[in-house]
Each structure stands twice: as C-alpha cells, then as structure tokens.
Deep mutational scan, measured.
Amino acid sequence: MSIQHFRVALIPFFAAFCLPVFAHPETLVKVKDAEDQLGARVGYIELDLNSGKILESFRPEERFPMMSTFKVLLCGAVLSRVDAGQEQLGRRIHYSQNDLVEYSPVTEKHLTDGMTVRELCSAAITMSDNTAANLLLTTIGGPKELTAFLHNMGDHVTRLDRWEPELNEAIPNDERDTTMPAAMATTLRKLLTGELLTLASRQQLIDWMEADKVAGPLLRSALPAGWFIADKSGAGERGSRGIIAALGPDGKPSRIVVIYTTGSQATMDERNRQIAEIGASLIKHW
C-alpha cells in the first residue's frame, strides 16, 4: 500500500482519535458579512469528516447552483462504474471539434489522439474542462443518470439537468442544476469515506481534487503551510461562485467545507476574496 493510499485508508482512524471539535460562531459572522459585502445569498456548511456531524452552517438547506462543483460527483459516478466493471479508466475516447464547448483548455489539445477516461476526469476536476465533463456525462448516460446515481446514494436534493455550459445559467428560483450545502457536503463525505467506492477509487477521487489547479484564489489562499486540501470550485452566471473541499491540518483532511453564493453584482475577484476570507476565519478558529 502506498503512503497516499495509507493516508486515505486511515482518515477515519486518525479522526477518531482527534480531540473533540467545537464550532466557532466567528466564522458564521464572516459568512454573514460576506453576504453584506456581496449583496447576495451565501450558503455555508462545515462537517466533521469522521462523524458527519454538522459543526457550523448557514442557509444549509437553500438551493444554490452547483456550477462546476458537480464534476466531482460526476467522476465519482464514473469511478463507481469502474468498480462495477462497467468502465475502464484506460479506455480512450475520441471526439471532434464539434464536441468542444466553451472553456476546454485540455480537451482542445487532444482532438487528434483523444483522451482516456482517467485523463478526462483529471481534466474535468483539476482544470474544470467543460468538454471533458460533457464527454464523461455521455459515458454514464447524461445528466439524468448522474441525478439517479445521487438518488441511489441517498441524495434526493442534488440534481443535474443540463450539460456544460448551460448548467451554469443560475436563474433565480430555478431548481435545475442545483444542490443544497448540506446535501453536497453529505454526498461528498460519502464519496470520500464511505463504502460506495473502493479504496482505490476513493484515493483516485481525492487525488484529482488535491491536484486542483484553478481554485488557488479561494480556500487555498488562506491555508497555512502543512495543511491538506482537496477541492473543486465552480463559477456561473449572475454572480455565482462555489467551492467544495476536504481539508485539515497535519497533512490530512478532517472536515468537509461547502460554500456557495449566487445573485451578486460583485466582480469575480471580490467573490473570490470573500470566500478566501471565510476560509481564513475557519482556519483561525479551527
């Protein structure tokens, strides 16, 4: 067993022997301040990774656009098919120029040779490549099948209805392509620590998230040296922004954090800054 596999296998073990965790309302004060600064709703939840206990939450059962955070769930569904012998990570998928959609920095470079399922998941999570996500959605049967996968996990809230990039439209009061912070946090925890996926697939999923290259201005910008984070960000229309993450000190994750916002007129930089400040408060009061 590799060191990384050992780390993920012992996530519940280490967490069980940690000192009790206590909620700190100071972080919620910052979440509410972010709402004021952005002029928009902000949803927040913080779960203990081992027990699933909610440590703090704000608007945990209000719907927010998922945006690209759905790509972690998508690759979880792909990995479940791999575990069941219905898919192979090494299978190569070929596609054409007509398949390319807006923001496809990886797939646009491989029109000639195609990409493997493993490479597509890596591109979808680490670079948020939209064509990679659409190609992977095709392998599982489309958005409705991802929703069905989530329902089978016990998540009857999260739903995907459309493809990239239309799913980022974020129309107010439109339930399409949305989740709730509580539902997303619980589902992410199941994917990373539950028995739904094999140990190898859980490790692969967290490795992809740990290698995320496009979430630097968010929670990662607030992390002290030595902290662990595996995350996936999302951005959408109407001032929408979000991030889902597993993080913790001492090089291992111990909490799940989900943050979503929508309806702001603020710039992307300002949305990023507010999420980073929430992260800084979380870490300060850990």
Rank of each mutant, 00 (worst) to 15 (best):
K30M: 13
A34Y: 10
E35V: 11
E35W: 10
D36T: 09
Q37Y: 13
L38A: 02
L38W: 01
G39Y: 02
R41V: 13
V42Q: 04
G43K: 03
G43E: 01
G43C: 05
Y44C: 05
E46Q: 13
S51R: 04
I54Y: 11
L55K: 11
L55C: 10
E56R: 11
E56Y: 13
S57L: 13
S57T: 13
S57K: 08
F58W: 00
R59T: 11
P60S: 09
R63F: 11
R63I: 06
P65F: 00
P65Y: 13
M66N: 07
S68Y: 00
T69R: 00
T69L: 06
F70C: 05
V72H: 05
L73D: 14
L73F: 10
L74W: 03
G76V: 02
A77E: 00
V78L: 12
S80M: 10
S80K: 15
D83Q: 09
D83N: 15
G85L: 15
E87I: 08
L89E: 10
R91H: 10
R92Y: 12
I93D: 01
I93F: 02
Y95L: 01
Y95A: 03
S96L: 01
Q97R: 15
N98W: 00
N98C: 03
N98K: 14
N98S: 00
N98H: 00
D99L: 13
D99M: 07
D99W: 06
D99Y: 10
L100F: 03
E102R: 05
Y103K: 02
P105N: 00
P105L: 15
V106L: 14
T107V: 01
T107M: 01
E108I: 00
E108L: 00
H110W: 01
H110G: 01
D113I: 00
G114N: 07
M115F: 10
R118T: 01
R118L: 02
R118V: 07
L120N: 15
A123Y: 15
T126V: 08
N130K: 15
N130P: 15
T131I: 11
A133I: 00
A133T: 06
N134D: 02
L135Y: 07
L137N: 11
G142A: 12
G142Q: 10
G142L: 08
K144A: 09
L146A: 14
L146K: 15
T147L: 04
T147K: 08
A148H: 13
F149M: 10
F149V: 04
M153F: 04
M153S: 09
M153P: 11
D155A: 04
T158R: 01
R159D: 00
L160Q: 03
L160T: 01
D161F: 04
D161G: 07
D161H: 13
D161Q: 12
D161A: 07
W163K: 11
E164A: 02
E164M: 00
P165T: 10
P165H: 02
E166P: 10
E166I: 14
A170T: 07
A170M: 10
I171P: 03
P172W: 06
P172L: 07
N173Q: 12
N173L: 10
R176D: 08
D177N: 07
D177C: 10
M180V: 09
P181D: 01
A182H: 08
A182S: 06
A183L: 10
L188K: 01
K190I: 03
K190L: 15
K190E: 11
L192D: 10
T193K: 02
E195R: 02
L197V: 07
L199R: 08
L199Q: 09
S201T: 09
R202L: 06
Q204G: 01
Q204N: 02
L205S: 05
L205W: 04
D207L: 06
D207N: 04
D207R: 10
W208I: 02
W208S: 00
M209P: 01
K213Y: 14
K213W: 08
V214M: 14
A215S: 05
A215Q: 02
A215G: 05
L218M: 05
R220I: 04
R220K: 08
S221A: 09
S221M: 13
S221N: 03
S221E: 08
L223K: 13
L223T: 05
P224K: 15
F228Q: 01
F228C: 02
I229A: 06
D231P: 06
D231Y: 13
K232M: 08
S233Q: 04
G234D: 01
A235G: 02
G236D: 05
E237F: 13
G239W: 14
I243S: 02
A246E: 10
G248S: 05
P249V: 08
D250G: 07
K252C: 03
P253M: 04
S254Q: 08
R255F: 04
I259N: 12
T262Y: 04
T262A: 08
G263A: 12
S264H: 11
M268C: 06
M268I: 02
D269Y: 02
D269L: 05
N272F: 15
N272I: 02
N272P: 15
R273D: 06
R273G: 08
Q274W: 11
I275G: 14
A276I: 13
E277V: 11
E277H: 12
I278A: 11
I278S: 14
S281Q: 07
S281V: 12
I283V: 10
I283W: 08
I283F: 10
H285R: 02
W286G: 04
W286Y: 11
